[in-house]
Structures are given as structure tokens and as C-alpha cells.
């Protein structure tokens, strides 16, 4: 045990309410790292998917077909108006019953989509529903006349969307998108309900095993999410600055 570990070991002996066990017990350290890694993966993958869903969904919302627009509206209403925790449980426990299984070792049946898979699907669609609305607002802020100029230059609807509308809409939507992505990162903790071993799950496991570690675990959770979300916000702000157009919108 090095001095750092020794310090926290001694602290736990003297103050049983402050048992930072993950600092001196390598097994618990590994659980924290695993949890952090899982949370990071969940966050990054869900952020990417939810943004893709938002961009594609906002494009679909402008479709000519009324049925397509209604379907998109239905999707948004469903995912926006129901709790993400219920969605997670519905995807995993209800839909999970109907997905095919396979048997890697010959006797245990494993579903094709794991709990992590369902968490990614569920959370991406949850945040994606908000992103569709966010991007739609941004798109509506792009002047009709600018799109008309693109049309007069021979661009079709998709080209106008990709080269003119999206780049301009993105700049308008970044603050709102930022908020939603921050929420998404925090909502990944709810994957705990379907036993995804993310950070909250691991921390609770630790203090279930070592009840004196409870306060220290919660402290770490706050700290970890402040840093995680801080990095995301920092990145988004840098992006926002990088996309700023000289002489436009200020």
C-alpha cells in the first residue's frame, strides 16, 4: 500500500462515515474504472446516435407525405412525454422478450440485444426525440429567401438541407442541443434499472458491499458527473466558437 492508499485507509479507520474504499482497494478501483468506462461509452454512443436521429428526423419532418410527418410526430410525442426510466424498462423487459436469442456456449440462451444494447437504443431515441424538435426550431430560423437562392442555383431539397439549412441551423441550435446532451449524459444513470454496469450501478454495488463507503461513493458520483458534463460543455462551447461566422448573428 502506497502513501496515498494508506492515507485513505487510515481515514476510513478513524472516520467510518468516510470510507474512500475505491482509493485503496484495487478491486473497488477497478469497479469504478469499469463504471466510468461504461458511462463514457454509453454517453458518447448515445450522443452520436441521438444527434443523427435529430438531424434525420428534422429532415423527415419536412417531408411531403403527411403519413411520414404524422409518424415522426408520434415518435416525438411518445418519447418526449414518457419517462426515460419507463422507456428503458419497456425496451429491455417487454421488447426484449420478442427479440431472438442465440446460444454461444450451447446451453445458455442469450438475447441478441444485450441490456447495454437496449440502453443505447432507448436513450438515443429518448434524446433523439428532443433533438428533432431542437433542429426543427433551428431549421425554421433559416430564412426562406436563403433557401430560395439555393433553389434558384439548381440545388434539390437534400442538397439545400445539407449545404445550406443544416450548417446555419446548427449554429442556432447549439445552445439548446448542448442542454439536451447534458441531460442525456445524466440520464445514462437510469440504465441502472436494467443492470447496465455504468458508474451509478458500480458505485451502488460498492456501498452495498461496504456500507461505510456510501458517502464517499456519492461524493465521487457528483465529482465524476461534474467533470464529465464539464468536458462535454467545454467541447460544445469550443465548437460553437469555432462555427461562429464573421459578421453574422452578433
Amino acid at each position: 500500500m502506497n502513501a496515498f492508499q494508506q492515507y485513505f485507509f487510515d481515514l476510513a479507520q478513524q472516520h467510518p462515515k468516510w470510507n474512500f474504499i475505491y482509493f485503496y482497494d484495487p478491486v473497488q478501483t477497478e469497479r469504478v474504472i469499469d463504471g466510468l468506462w461504461m458511462t463514457l461509452q454509453l454517453s458518447v454512443i448515445c450522443v452520436i446516435f441521438s444527434v443523427i436521429i435529430g438531424v434525420v428526423g428534422a429532415w423527415v419532418q419536412g417531408a411531403h407525405s403527411k403519413t411520414v410527418r404524422l409518424l415522426m410526430q408520434g415518435y416525438i410525442q411518445f418519447f418526449r412525454n414518457t419517462p426515460p426510466l419507463v422507456q428503458l424498462m419497456f425496451f429491455y423487459f417487454a421488447l426484449g422478450q420478442f427479440t431472438p436469442t442465440y446460444s454461444p456456449d450451447g446451453w445458455l440462451e442469450v438475447p441478441i440485444i444485450s441490456n447495454v444494447g437496449w440502453a443505447i437504443i432507448s436513450l438515443s431515441f429518448f434524446a433523439g426525440a428532443f433533438n428533432v424538435e431542437i433542429f426543427r426550431a433551428g431549421i425554421e430560423a433559416v430564412p426562406e429567401s436563403t433557401q430560395e437562392a439555393a433553389e434558384a442555383l439548381g440545388m434539390n431539397r437534400l442538397q439545400i438541407y445539407i449545404y445550406v439549412v443544416l450548417p446555419l441551423a446548427f449554429r442556432v441550435t447549439l445552445p439548446a442541443l448542448n442542454n439536451n446532451l447534458v441531460n442525456l449524459v445524466k440520464t445514462t444513470t437510469q440504465a441502472l434499472a436494467i443492470a447496465v454496469p455504468e458508474l451509478l450501478y458500480q458505485m451502488i454495488s460498492i456501498y452495498n458491499d461496504y456500507s461505510t463507503a456510501q458517502n464517499a461513493c456519492m461524493l465521487f458520483l457528483f465529482f465524476a458527473y461534474i467533470v464529465l458534463v464539464g468536458i462535454l460543455v467545454f467541447g460544445m462551447h469550443r465548437w460553437e466558437r469555432g462555427m461562429r461566422i464573421p459578421g453574422y448573428g452578433q
Binding site: T146, A150, Y163, G249
Partner: peptide, 9 residues
């Protein structure tokens, strides 16, 4: 066009 309608980005 009257309002130029350049692509501002």
C-alpha cells in the same frame, strides 16, 4: 435577388 441571399456561412 433584392436581399442578395448569400450563404452567410
Amino acid at each position: 435577388f433584392q436581399q442578395y441571399n448569400l450563404f452567410p456561412h
